[in-house]
Computed example of a mutant assay.
Amino acid sequence: MRSVIPLMLMALTAGAATAAETAPVSGTLLTVVAEGRVARAPDLVEISGGVVSDAPTAAAAMAANAKAMTAVVAAVRKAGIAGADVQTQGLSLQPQYRYEQNRPPELIGYQASNSVAVKVRRIADTGRLLDTLVAVGANRIDGPNFRIEDADGALDTARAEAVARARARAQLYARAAGLTIRRIVAISESGAMTPPRPMMMARMAAAEAVSTPVAPGEVALSVNVTVEFELQ
């Protein structure tokens, strides 16, 4: 019998805790939406380099493109970029037509395009790498897109800031109404986001003598939270 009593007491205690957690709201409800923001220097930049090739036949366009892209990929690897940080992202072959009024479209050739996405972890090398890609035959460059690799860690800081702002705002409302905060009823996150950065897109014909300048600046991350307070 002695072994049963502690189990019964534990069950009663657990039931009481559950009842306390799900206790109905008896005071005034206040919902506050707040934003937390954090800015960090980026530690990763994404670019892409590719080649667009035109030729009279599909086979010739693909062959010319393959030769040029082989040089582009080799230059990326020679620059010290790990294989895991290089990925083909677009390969296409399209017929090219001439359109004239009152005449059917005339096939004039084919255009092949291919590009690779590259993650550059030494941001200071970005400008030099872009120039190298153009020098070996790349005529399409997209980027740079600056990122924080450990975005979750930075977002956690923004989350804590958002909740602190929500509580401070709730305390302001509570004082103005002659009330106090009893507890937080619910917290929800409406989304974590990185503001989009403009992408540099260009078709390049020749490399400049001076290395392309790249300024990383800072990457801003933000989180919005909705916090429901019970006032008394």
Results as ranks from 00 to 15, higher is better:
residue 215 A to F: 11
residue 204 M to E: 04
residue 48 S to V: 09
residue 135 A to W: 00
residue 140 R to V: 02
residue 91 L to A: 13
residue 214 V to K: 03
residue 97 Y to F: 10
residue 199 M to P: 12
residue 205 A to V: 15
residue 105 P to M: 05
residue 191 G to Y: 09
residue 156 D to P: 03
residue 4 V to R: 06
residue 56 P to T: 02
residue 230 E to N: 11
residue 190 S to R: 13
residue 138 A to D: 00
residue 40 R to F: 02
residue 168 A to I: 01
residue 96 Q to S: 08
residue 72 V to Y: 00
residue 108 I to D: 09
residue 111 Q to Y: 05
residue 63 A to W: 06
residue 19 A to F: 11
residue 192 A to H: 12
residue 102 N to H: 01
residue 170 A to L: 04
residue 99 Y to A: 10
residue 112 A to E: 11
residue 73 V to E: 08
residue 143 G to A: 01
residue 199 M to C: 09
residue 1 M to T: 03
residue 86 V to C: 12
residue 32 V to E: 08
residue 51 V to H: 11
residue 57 T to M: 08
residue 154 A to L: 04
residue 131 D to W: 00
residue 86 V to E: 11
residue 217 G to I: 06
residue 191 G to P: 06
residue 149 E to Y: 09
residue 76 V to I: 14
residue 26 S to L: 07
residue 128 R to T: 11
residue 228 E to I: 14
residue 185 V to R: 13
residue 30 L to S: 02
residue 4 V to D: 05
residue 224 N to H: 09
residue 145 N to R: 10
residue 134 V to D: 00
residue 213 P to Y: 12
residue 191 G to L: 09
residue 182 R to L: 13
residue 196 P to V: 04
residue 46 E to L: 11
residue 148 I to E: 03
residue 161 E to H: 02
residue 37 R to V: 10
residue 14 A to N: 15
residue 223 V to P: 03
residue 86 V to K: 06
residue 103 R to G: 06
residue 199 M to W: 08
residue 31 T to V: 12
residue 168 A to P: 01
residue 128 R to A: 09
residue 19 A to T: 14
residue 127 G to M: 06
residue 83 G to T: 14
residue 27 G to T: 09
residue 2 R to E: 04
residue 85 D to G: 06
residue 180 T to Y: 05
residue 82 A to D: 14
residue 170 A to H: 02
residue 7 L to Q: 14
residue 219 V to A: 01
residue 164 A to H: 07
residue 132 T to N: 00
residue 10 M to F: 10
residue 114 N to R: 12
residue 26 S to G: 13
residue 183 R to Y: 13
residue 147 R to K: 08
residue 43 D to K: 09
residue 131 D to L: 00
residue 225 V to K: 09
residue 101 Q to R: 05
residue 85 D to R: 10
residue 85 D to H: 12
residue 54 D to A: 10
residue 120 V to Q: 08
residue 140 R to G: 02
residue 130 L to A: 02
residue 231 L to W: 07
residue 18 T to A: 14
residue 76 V to E: 08
residue 100 E to M: 09
residue 53 S to T: 02
residue 189 E to H: 15
residue 216 P to Y: 03
residue 33 V to T: 13
residue 96 Q to R: 10
residue 27 G to N: 11
residue 163 V to S: 08
residue 80 G to Q: 10
residue 21 E to D: 15
residue 92 S to D: 15
